[in-house]
Amino acid sequence: MKYSGIWILAEQDGGRVQRISYELLTRGRELAEKRNTDLTAMIFGHDINADDLQELIDCGADRVVAMEASELEHFLVEPYSACMLRIIEEYRPEIIIAGATSTGRTLMPYVAIKAHAGLTADCTVLDIEADTGNLLQTRPAIGGNILATIKTPSHRPQMATVRPRSTKPAAKQPGRSGEIIRLEATADLLTSRVRRVGFEASEESHSLQDADVVVAVGRGIKKSENIPLMQELADALDAALGASRDVIDRGWMSYPHQIGLSGKTVTPKFYLGAGVSGSIQHLAGMQTAETIVAINTDPDAQIFNVADFGIVGDLFEIVPVLTEKIRQVKGNG
């Protein structure tokens, strides 16, 4: 049987559709136009807000397939993968795209094995190969030092994850219509050997990805005792504090602060990095920021290649002066 159609995995939390879903609609819509086919959003959950499902249509989906059950309220790999495999069997999607979230990064490989599908993680560019119709998936590889373009010539579906916040979410377009299908999540799909027995919310890590201003600490900070210097700058700018992998690996800050390929992607209006050299691993997580400012002693540091404004000098001399100056300006403003 033929595989056709572009599908995205929409995500919900507490019954509300999450931002990543709309980012995937932006990606999916582009591919659907190029491939001249339909775009469908699949979603698993419990008591999903009906207006939110309609909004998926308004924002670019031609069809929504929702599977709902109390067992699907939160992500659990076994019921979610059973449901996705059920959809693959029923609808034969040619392409499935999910967010590179804690859900997508776990669910997609689990499903791809069973479907014998090709899966590419963390794609930054998705395109359709003109003559074959294959999905072309471009991603950073080898610590972000190169970009590799990957395709899946003879297995279907073609599956890919894309980083959250690597695309703008799709906007509502007036007058769109589409079908919302409720596919039954039968009991045989819902068994799980993992149970969610609690949840502890953390404010801190969330704010990094949502922040309009991010201050990042690099290895140039030299030791953990110097972190407060950067925290003061972040506070003066009303910014979230992040760090490069080197800083996290040395234990100077905790893992939720890590910006980069193996940490978080941030797309703030303003990013300021001090003592950050700009390994491609780090750049992969911040180079889409609107304005980038770098402070580094090395005039040839890679970070300056992606920066709009750079100060070549010692952060220990510059940062205290900068913090004070910002306080003055803001105090008067």
Partner: peptide, 16 residues
């Protein structure tokens, strides 16, 4: 299932 079809260096450029 997957094949690497192309490898290239990322280009990054802003006027600093």
């Amino acid at each position: 299932p997957t094949r690497v079809v192309k490898i290239h260096k990322p280009t990054v450029a802003r006027n600093c």
